[in-house]
Design a protein around this nucleic acid. Structure first.
Lengths: 341, 341
DNA sequence: TCGCAGGCGGAAAGCGCTTTCCACCCCCTT
DNA sequence: AAGGGGGTGGAAAGCGCTTTCCGCCTGCGA
């Protein structure tokens, strides 16, 4: 039985007031003991009484009230296109790890690549006074998103992005371009000259950069746009090989599409890599388990997410650009260009 | 230039006060216009002035202040073992979808199967006054977690779980037992008698139930415990087949481990399914892309996550139990038991 | 012995919003 | 024409916490 007459809060939650009463001290003292920030110390004995009372009552501070009083919250936001996509899941996991080290909670928003939803979520993150937000999805080129980002920053939040989202915000920039180039060089070195590329939605920055890197080596690949999914890759591969049966290699701009490509080639009865080589991008865990195991470009996604979160949480000036290396991972799905066609 | 003399808030954020001043109305009126809940109407003209001022100033309500005043927040929590695991990612995605329909933000907490972290996060969710929390990770049998769950519920939050976490909370219960049984029946019907089972960590409820379902049909399978990962599955398969070369089928209690099992059998040179059949559980997207395509038990994870979130957000009494069906998906990794060994 | 400084607890003023009253105005009724 | 009622805006009291002052008490030096 608490020895205070103050009633329980509506939700039934214990308040600091109650803790203070139970400990026989003032609200101020209780606050100083439990969340004491400002250099002020409280005598041993009192502090003890307060902490005891708090734990007996299972007190946890009302975070919204704290945010209000301190005018800073303990949540950060992560905006992803789709958390069920292992690409984003890996980034989010890395970011959440770092957030935990800093005792922050993470609000995850699934935007489904819908620019409207993206803006909306960003506004709501601003409403929450999230300390920072990580834009993990690759930007749509030229989307009218900058305004909302600016509003967020203006209201005191930090912003960082994976891949360029504009100037003035911290960015972790995976070397998409370099990755594309590496893969092109790899395929060329294997003798491939007729290469098809399965790209994602036009206008997705990631796609553009990977492709640009590739075409810096292979001038005019056969292109086909598709959904950034397994199914998209499968359909695109069928289309590609129907129109260009002479192709000896297919480069899918992500691993999901590459998985679809492998499925399609199996359906078409073209052995990989003997007849057609296949390559992907991202090095998702699934890459190893495909048959044949997928040659791809590795992005250390968890690491990238973690770095971005660190950028958000340190006290350095903003606008930094941290590169993240792309690395060629050669497995079994690529081989010498077949000479017969 | 706002026509009020009130300064900008520290963070630089616009306050309702400023909006009210700009619109030339009182705080109360502005609040009623923008977030007006209690049946009260405001005259057309005034309302118009307020909304205009608000959008011109890019006002968004301070969510923590709102939470405090209304004593209810707009966030819900989702506790998962690891968001990078596609199993949990799918559940979370389903849940987030429903949350969005209800205009709620989702706090995701990665617990890494660490009971301490789990309790900790739950307390912090309570601190945030999260409206509800979804316990997506399968419980450890008998963990001292109930206390914290009770505290959360007591302080006014709803709790739901995937898989049983105790009585008195809403539960979506995937038919783990039934799934295990289905797979056992399938393997038996193919003539398998010597079956090895690769289980996850002992003490994980999911594991126990899947296994129980299986052993209800196949009395004493060869068991080996492993990490609930691809690597765990690979190592376990090596161990299993070394000790019991007579096995004609391996049932891995999740798809990740099954992928590892397939890899191990490839290394061992035992063709699947001709020599050894392999089965998994969950039907993750990767299952189709394995070679041979994996026979497994399908759990509609996104649907399960969505249902659980709906349980959390409706107004029905708590303590409900919603079953979720498990479904056998036969692909190429299982076949007739080989007679030669 | 008195004065003063330093240390430490408490009162109270917010933080930005919601919501209950209260007051006012206008119009309708008798 | 006067009284009353409905409708609508505003003042103010919180929501639970932090943090600035303020003032008390103690202990030390002169």
């Amino acid at each position: 039985m608490p020895r205070t007459s103050s009633t329980r809060a509506p939700g039934g939650a214990v308040t600091l007031q109650q803790v203070a009463a139970a400990a026989g001290v003032s609200l101020a003292t209780a606050s100083r003991v439990l969340h004491g920030s400002g250099g002020r110390r409280v005598a041993e004995a009192l502090a003890e009484r307060v902490t005891t009372a708090a734990s007996e009552l299972r007190y946890v501070a009302h975070a919204p009230a704290q945010s209000l009083a301190r005018s800073r919250s303990t949540v950060v936001g992560v905006l992803v296109h789709d958390i069920a996509d292992p690409y984003f899941a890996a980034i989010a996991a890395g970011a959440m790890d770092v957030a935990r080290e800093h005792d922050l909670m993470v609000l995850v928003a699934n935007t489904f690549r819908d620019p409207g939803l993206e803006r909306d979520y960003l506004a709501r993150l601003r409403a929450q006074r999230a300390r920072a937000v990580l834009l993990a999805g690759s930007a749509f080129v030229g989307e009218p998103f900058a305004e909302e980002v600016a509003a967020f920053a203006e209201s005191g939040g930090r912003v960082a992005a994976i891949g360029a989202h504009g100037t003035g915000i911290d960015t972790v920039e995976p070397d998409q371009y370099g990755g594309g180039r590496l893969m092109a060089e790899h395929l060329v070195s294997l003798g491939h000259r007729e290469i098809g590329v399965i790209t994602g939605p036009a206008g997705l920055a990631t796609v553009a950069q990977r492709l640009a890197g590739f075409t810096s080596v292979v001038a005019r690949p056969r292109l086909v746009h598709a959904d950034f999914t397994r199914e998209g890759g499968r359909a695109a591969t069928h289309e590609l090989l129907t129109r260009h049966p002479e192709l000896t290699a297919v480069f899918a701009l992500n691993d999901l599409m590459a998985a679809g490509a492998l499925a399609a080639l199996r359906e078409l009865g073209r052995p990989v890599p003997e007849r057609v080589s296949v390559a992907g991008f991202d090095d998702l865990p699934v890459a190893t388990d495909l048959t044949p195991a997928l040659t791809t470009v590795r992005l250390r996604l968890a690491e990238i997410g973690a770095r971005a979160m660190r950028l958000l949480l340190d006290d350095e000036p903003v606008g930094r650009l941290v590169p993240a290396e792309a690395e060629l991972v050669v497995r079994e799905s690529t081989g010498q260009a077949s000479t017969l066609h």
